[in-house]
Every structure is written in C-alpha cells, then in structure tokens.
Design a protein around this nucleic acid. Structure first.
Lengths: 352, 352
DNA sequence: CCGATGTGTTGGACCGTTCCAACGCATCGT
DNA sequence: ACGATGCGTTGGAACGGTCCAACACATCGG
C-alpha cells in the first residue's frame, strides 16, 4: 500500500472535479473577490479532495518573480553565521520573501555550481555571510541581482552593499575596558591576516596608543580557532614582560587562550584577564563566562534583509555600506590585575 | 551605471544571435553529440556573450524533475545537525541531487508554510533532522514524497524510513567505561522526557543492572542544555551518597555539569568523572576535553541521503530503519575514582 | 423595448524550456 | 538515376500555471 503513483494533480484536474474552468480555479485559489461563493467552495473542496498543490515552477515561469532570496553561508559551524541567518530569515519572511541557503563547501567547484543553480532558480537577490566568493564571484553575482555582503567591508570600487560591525571600535572597547580595570600590559592574540582580524588588530593598536600605552603594544600570531588562540597565548605568556591581560581576536581563540592560561598554571581572571570577540553563545556557558565584544548579529541579519527587500520592492539600485556598533559584554574572565605582580613566572607550558 | 534592466536573456535570444533555431541551442547546451562543432561553438559563444543562464523553472516544468531534496533542520544552533547536514549534502551531491534547507522556527505557522513551499517546489524527497513536525506533518510529507527521518526512531505503524544512533548501546558504553575505571556510584543527569533522552536513560539503567549496580542507579532531572546539566548536577552532588561519576545526557549538559562540579569545589576528573553524549566539536576544545559517546554524525547524514537517493533513482518504495553504533571517545574528564573517598563533602553550591 | 451596466465565467495566449516528428541535403550502394 | 541512409537542423506541442479580452446572462434606467 505504498507504491503510490506520485504524480501531482494539476489545476485542470481540480477544474474537472469542481465542474468549472481552470481559469476559475486559478481565480478562486487566489481568492479573487469576483468568484461566486458557491463555485469558490466547489473549487476548494475539489482541491482538498485531490490534495492539490500549485506548481511553483509553473507559477514563477509566468510571474517572472520568485520572491526568493539566496543566502550563501560560508560555514555553518561558526555560530555567528547562524545568528545572522536567523535574523535575516525572520526579516525576509516579514517582507514575504523566502530564503534559500547554500552552504560553503571545501569543494569549490561544487560550491560554485550550487551558486550557479541559485541564479538559475532566479533568486531575486543575494546575501552572503562571510564572503569567500570564487574569484570574480562577487561581481558575477551583482551582475545578476542585487546583493548584500554581511560581515565584509568592501573597498571602494564595486557597487555592492555591505553590512558589518565596526571591528576597530569593538577592539577599542576591549582595550578601554581592560585599561579601566587598571591593566597596562595588554597583549593581543591576532586572528590571522584576513581583513577582519586586521581591523581588530588596528583598533587594538590605536586604543593602546591613545591610552599612552604604545610601548606595551604586543601582538602574537593566532588564528580564529581554539588551537590558534592556544598557540598565540603560549607565546604571549612566554614573552619577557608577561601581559596581565589579553585581547584575543575571537571567542573560539579566547577559549583556547583560557586553556593555555590554565596549562601555564595561571588563574583567569586573577592572574590573567581575557577578552574575546563576537559574542557567540559558547562564551556565555557557565564554565566559560567569557568577557567579550558582542556583535549585533541578529540585527545585522535583519538589516541586511531589510535593505535588500526595500531594494527589490522599490526597484531602486544603489549601494549602501552599513556599519554597526558592537557592544562589550562583561563576564568573569576580566578583573583588575592582581596587586602582587608574581615575580617568578610559574611553570610555562611546553611550546608545541 | 547600475540601473540595469535585470531581464534575463532567453534561449531565443541566444538562438537569434547565433543564427540558429532555439531547438539547436537547447541541444548544443546539453552537448548532444549530433550538433555540428561549428554551430555548437556559435551557440556557446552567443550564450557567453549574452550571459545566458537557463531558467530552472521552465526546465523543471517540462522535465517533471527537480533533482532536489528538501531538508528540514530543527535547530542550526545544535552542531550535531550541522555535521549531519554536511554529510548529507556531500552524498546528495554525489548522486547529483541538490538540497534545499529549511530551518525550524519558533513561528510554527511560518515553519509550516516554508515546508509547504518546499512541496510546491516539487522536491523529490525529504530528510528531516530532529523531528518536531507539525502534527500530522510526517504523514503529510510522506504522502507527497519519500522521506527519511534522521535522529528519530519511528514506532511501528507509519511507513517512514529513519536513521538514528543506538542510544541505548551508547549509554551502556558510557557506563561500561566508567565501571572499567572502577566506579560504582555512577549517577545519570537526564535530558528531559523526549524519546532520545529516554532511551539514553534506559541504556544507563540496563548497564548498571548488568554490572550488578542496580542499587546505585540514580537519575537527576536535567535537560539538553548547559543550564539543564548544571541544575541536574547540583542536585546529584547534593545527594546523600555522592556519585564519583556522572553520565550526562548530552555534551552541552555535560559542560554545564563541569561548571557545577567546579562551583562545588570538585576537580574533574580527580573528584568526579563526567561522560557526555553526541561528540560535538565543543567537547574537543582544549579547555574542555570531554569524554563522550560520539554519534557517527557525518555518516548518518551520508546514509540518509544515500538511501533516499537510491529510493528516488530506483523508484522503489519501502521503508528502512537504520540504527548506527556510536563510539566512545575518551578524553580528560574521566579517570579512576580517587582512592580516598573524601569523607566530608566540600562546600556545595547554593541551589538555584 | 433597448442599450448600458455589472457579475461570474471562460478560452486562449503566454512564460522558457525539452523533446519529438519531420525536414533538407549529402552520400552511398546498386 | 534512384531509393535508402545518415547527419544536422527545425517547427511545434507540451509542461502547469496566470491573466486578459470576451462572453453569457441578469438587472436596471430611460
């Protein structure tokens, strides 16, 4: 009892059963005011009886609209994208747009093909979260439809909208916070040489300078990951004038930094204060309680969708670059430096 | 220079430019062997010149196939679904199927509508990760197309395929591991009363009984979350015969358990061993290093897609229930119980 | 009684593809 | 010289909807 012939009933089948023309069925289903209540009910009943579902392909073919926007997400493992995605979908829904999500993949060719399929589906707009578009991909996309890049800042030339948090300002907040606690030997574990990491580094350096701590600027190479944060922190702690506080490029790396501190026998925050960046939910876990600079992730998603939808609705082009302000969230990994600067450094972890 | 008229060129435009008929263009683009090389090149050149992209809607309308499978994901915040999703997409791609993802939402109506759209798109099959389908949704879906439920075990009646890990066996692994370390006072912090949590609890009880530890069975109400694990653990530690080891219902809750242990002044694993469940990447972070029962997440995704695709390709119906074996991953939160069972319990955290 | 007006319904064109039957034209065997 | 064969190409039907012009029919005002 399950070798069902999965052929879907069409509008004609409904029409036949209801004893009306297919045109009338169409009208009735869009509940046009000009169909007689009697025939409307007949149509509805017939449709229900047959389990009729309109065929989206046929509809979009004639309507020339899909009311769909494509979303490219670099990496679903990174929860910041999930938060953004959520905001974005809610807002799109409000404007009566559907979203279809493509997840970035190791296999660049497959990824590219997937994007191509999106265009063949005739998505009306695109939003990318974490852009690592195939070379020329950005312009290829923007040639086909309006697009908004989230979490990326575009340099000058191309006409793509973007929306991002102000990394420079965020980094300054982190430093300001630590300075307000009385720290001065504040080091930075970087997130690599991508543009986001670079901006955070810049903000760090600027803030230190502004506070008259230019001499204490010290950056250690890290990465946007647990491991990267661990490695950078090991090096930072081994340096001659050991920092009393660390600004780490993102939350994952900050968690790695906490592990490195523990391995070095340092207590957080007593012996070492740590500030992360991003505000992922991991940071708020009880056993972590990381002080961090939180991006307005949900809001960034909302704004991105809102702007894209107005563009689509008003048919107006034009590019906008929105930059939003992050917010410091103080938890339990920061505190004033301990009064007694431990004179003999405790056992350092083996450098790996 | 950017008020582009975004009207897409059609196959006719290409034909006109190449000086051939639209039929030939169609043939050439599917590179049929029977078009002259000369005209093929003309077509390709014209298509490139115009930036032609086939219209997926038109294609599927006539082809009656979308080569697309719909995926419903309950909650992207839970990384186990992301792992499954990844495996699933890779496998689907191998079979030349595309996937389109719908994310669960608070707004049940919106969620339902989204699912409905999926059917209107004529996805050929469905996979659901973490089923919380609108009532009757499961059967509604299976009436429209073949479906596979991942991470759910179906009871008897309906004809839906499912694939899950063997929670009972996994829970036994956790207990066996702790027993092999010499623990006997092993308590369980539960994951609530959903079916998955219930099965894990059953496995725990069975294993305890098998080891002759039936008298030591003790379950404390928790939840699949940081908070839930914390609360359950606080209660477990307050019990008269304090456990030396804890089997916690999932990894998030286990992380909460670690926090509770720390708040109680207990060291993990010296004073308390903890085993989680799921094998999410959070568990492998340096500062956590959780011993856990890992589900073969990626593989579950692969198997789900593989089975669905064969069903679609061979047109054969029939339901399968696959149950896969989880695997114990030993890290640093488990150890033999400390020889001196601390006589006076240390300061307990305030119950909150 | 007739034209105007309005209400409910209908056939058919159209959207952009794919596919099929049929075509023109060389080439070939007899 | 002529039918058969093959290759390359073509028009047109179909897919399942939407929408428009046109229709039948009743009602109404003058």
């Amino acid at each position: 009892m399950s070798t069902v012939a999965r052929s879907h009933p069409t509008i004609r089948d409904v029409a036949a059963l209801a004893g009306v023309s297919k045109s009338l069925v169409s009208l009735a289903l869009q509940n046009s005011p000009r169909v007689a209540t009697e025939s409307r009910e007949a149509v509805l009943a017939a449709a229900a009886a047959l389990g009729y579902r309109p065929n989206a392909a046929a509809r979009t073919l004639v309507a020339h609209r899909t009311r769909t926007i494509g979303v490219f997400v670099l990496d679903l493992r990174n929860p910041i994208y999930v938060d953004i995605l959520e905001g974005l979908q809610a807002e799109a829904r409000r404007h009566d747009y559907r979203t279809i999500v493509v997840v970035g993949s190791e296999d660049r060719a497959a990824e590219r093909a997937e994007l191509e399929k999106l265009m063949e589906f005739r998505v009306e707009g695109m939003i990318t979260l974490g852009h690592r578009l195939p070379e020329g991909g950005a312009t290829a996309i923007s040639a086909a439809c309006p697009a908004v890049l989230v979490g990326a800042e575009r340099r000058g030339r191309d006409h793509l909208s973007s929306i991002s948090n102000d990394d420079v300002a965020g980094a300054r907040m982190a430093v300001d916070h630590l300075v307000s606690y009385g720290h001065s030997r504040i080091s930075h574990v970087t997130g690599g040489d991508n543009s986001v990491a670079l901006r955070r580094r810049t903000g760090y350096a600027q803030a230190m300078t502004d506070h008259g701590l230019a001499a204490d600027i010290a950056c250690f190479d890290g990465e946007f990951s647990d491991e990267g944060g661990y490695r950078g922190t090991v090096r930072a702690l081994a340096s001659t004038s050991r920092p009393t506080a660390l600004f780490v490029a993102n939350d994952y790396a900050a968690v790695g930094a906490m592990a490195a501190a523990a391995d070095a026998g340092l207590k957080v925050p007593e012996d070492l204060s740590i500030v992360g960046y991003d505000g992922i939910s991991l940071a708020s876990l009880r056993s972590i309680g990381l002080t961090t600079v939180a991006q307005p992730l949900h809001d960034m998603g909302v704004k991105a969708a809102a702007w894209l939808c107005t563009q689509l609705e008003d048919g107006m082009g034009g590019t906008r670059r929105i930059r939003m302000s992050p917010q410091l969230v103080v938890r339990s990994t920061t505190a004033p430096p301990s009064p007694s600067p431990s004179p003999s450094p405790p056992n350092l972890p083996a450098d790996r």
